[in-house]
Design a protein around this nucleic acid. Structure first.
Lengths: 341, 341
DNA sequence: TTGTATGCGTTATCAG
DNA sequence: CTGATAACGCATACAA
């Protein structure tokens, strides 16, 4: 260590750097020497010695999805107060799924821990590899059951109920649900919540009004809209399994001259910032995504320090009423209202 | 090295791992031992020995800005084929500017090089620190002059001309320009381009139609729109200094019942994917953002291997005509047309 | 309080 | 072709 030329031993310098005790005079001298030499200690060597990597890995599907951006933001905030860096890896890069980079991280012990956002079935191999390498993992909003892993998720059932009750209170009786991927648990839970919420208002979710978009993407929403908006609408409100789908629907509605919410009310889930910017702005049930990012990071560090502590943390979603949901259209509304009474 | 228990020396194992020559029999044996022991070499130690960090730093203003997301995507693509990781740092995290993390990177030699996206004046200290630490830097689309630094930028002048000519060809005569931050060079160049483009079509950019939004953000666009849309519009087309501003304007236009492009045509710059999703979809002059990300990464590695090679790379922007620009409204168009002839 | 010695896991340089 | 051995730059027991 170059700074040892300040007249003392390496270990003393090390102690100085780490805030351990050194005599005031030596401290002053070292401070001066370090300043003069423009010295800075090696992050790499330090980590090697400490037996850690000094960075955590964050795995997302695609950073193009605003949902992941929010998670990332939360993680970065939490990381700001910690002596560790953020390594990023996208699973979907050039249109196809490629987890190889993550496997490299795990194999080479390149990170101290991993945060997995929105894990799906296809990511099982990653989970497996991490477990085998005894690498701490925390999963944020996984769309599947995950025992043996630290998990943060939202109460999607409750969220479904919130939006259903909101729509019912606006007078809607014929409410539709447009789901995400067929196998998605989140989508199922949200649907169940909607059904339950309507039931609480003594309304029934007509099975004929339960659709599927087959995916979570905005494109899937537009495709669904195109198939639906040709004929007269059999519903006065439609709940999409997430915001992206709803936004896709809005896009097509504009093209076709279908007015939202006058002709049909539209709602989503997630609470993406984008929803506040669309026209009309999107009514949604928001996840505290950023908080989840923050907490996931905090939990990961706890797991790194003390492995083995697995717990499930649940977050609540909150209704965010905006412009895309309005009172049921007078005509249809009245008729149906009477019919259901 | 544990695998040395396979009967050979440490150095042999190292050679094996790095693909250097080892006898076939030893190779087979080692492969077996490594498999059995579940061995994997330490990334940290490797980097320590090689005298490198094994990761590059990417500095963005905020990952919430879709522009940075595209750059990041490009970088990630390029990185996929390289043995290095991506460290991310946002300059604006909780509403305020905080470059401390980047300074840590530089001070602690935590990265092999840095990619700076959209550098501004306020980032000068970062540039300075990096230069002093002899850390390779490449700047992507900096909004200022940057000698002595590897720079990638777009021809904003030409871009302005492209959109101006497009609008002129649609019959627009009274074209307005709404700029970004007052000190922005990019904004100035785009304005100049628009002026020049109109001139080529024998049209004049009325100084009274040159506005400023004061910032690059979507919010600035909405604020500007609110101040403008109260009275009759003095223009038939308006060019915003970037897509975000234009999208903010569209939002307010919807609220006020101003039809785009029937009442006024709207255009932006950058080519954010978001622009294709809005209603109406946004006509814009697109930067090859993703390519720029890719190239910036490639150049950074070249600079790491062989420092000192500074060059300026220029990219061309391309016109992307979409729905937000249409022919000039019949009435106004005819009158003004005649008037200008 | 400070110095000494050892280890962290690799790579690179030499001999053999 | 392969085996020792010296770095790499730091942390930490232990000794002084």
């Amino acid at each position: 260590m170059v700074a040892a030329q300040g007249g003392v031993a390496v270990s003393t310098v090390s102690r100085f750097l780490n805030g351990h005790y050194v005599s005031p005079e030596v401290r002053a001298r070292l401070a001066h020497v370090i300043e003069t030499l423009g010295y800075s200690r090696s992050w790499t060597a330090r980590n090697l010695s400490l037996g850690r990597r000094g960075s955590i890995g964050v795995v997302v599907d695609s950073i193009e999805d605003p949902w992941f951006v929010q998670v990332l933001l939360g993680i970065e905030e939490e990381l700001a107060s910690r002596d560790s860096s953020l390594m990023l890896a996208s699973l979907e890069l050039l249109g196809r799924y490629d987890p190889s980079r993550v496997f490299e991280w795990i194999r080479d012990h390149r990170v101290d821990g991993v945060i997995l956002a929105k894990t799906q079935r296809r990511d099982r191999a990653i989970l497996h590899a991490a477990a085998q390498a005894r690498l701490p993992v925390v999963a944020v909003a996984p769309d599947e059951r995950l025992p043996d892993v630290q998990v943060l998720h939202c109460n999607n059932m409750e969220a479904g109920m919130l939006i259903a009750e909101h729509l019912a209170d606006l007078g809607h009786v014929r409410v539709a649900f447009a789901g995400g991927p067929a196998h998605s648990i989140d989508s199922k839970h949200r649907l169940r919540g909607v059904r339950e919420g309507l039931a609480r208002r003594r309304l029934r979710l007509d099975p004929a009004l339960v659709f599927s978009c087959g995916a979570w993407s905005l494109d899937a929403g537009t495709a669904f809209a195109q198939s639906l908006l040709g004929r007269p609408l059999p519903m006065t409100a439609i709940v999409f399994a997430n915001d992206a789908l709803a936004l896709g629907f809005l896009r097509v509605a504009h093209e076709r001259g279908v007015r939202v919410p006058q002709d049909v009310s539209v709602a989503g889930f997630d609470g993406l910032p984008l929803g506040a910017l669309s026209w009309p702005s999107l009514t949604t049930v928001a996840q505290p995504i950023r908080d989840m990012g923050r907490v996931s990071c905090r939990r990961l560090f706890e797991a790194i320090v003390q492995p083995g502590s697995v717990e499930q943390i649940q977050f609540r979603m909150t209704l965010v009423p905006r412009e895309s949901c309005g009172p049921v259209p007078a005509a249809a509304g009245t008729v149906l209202r009477l019919a259901s009474e």
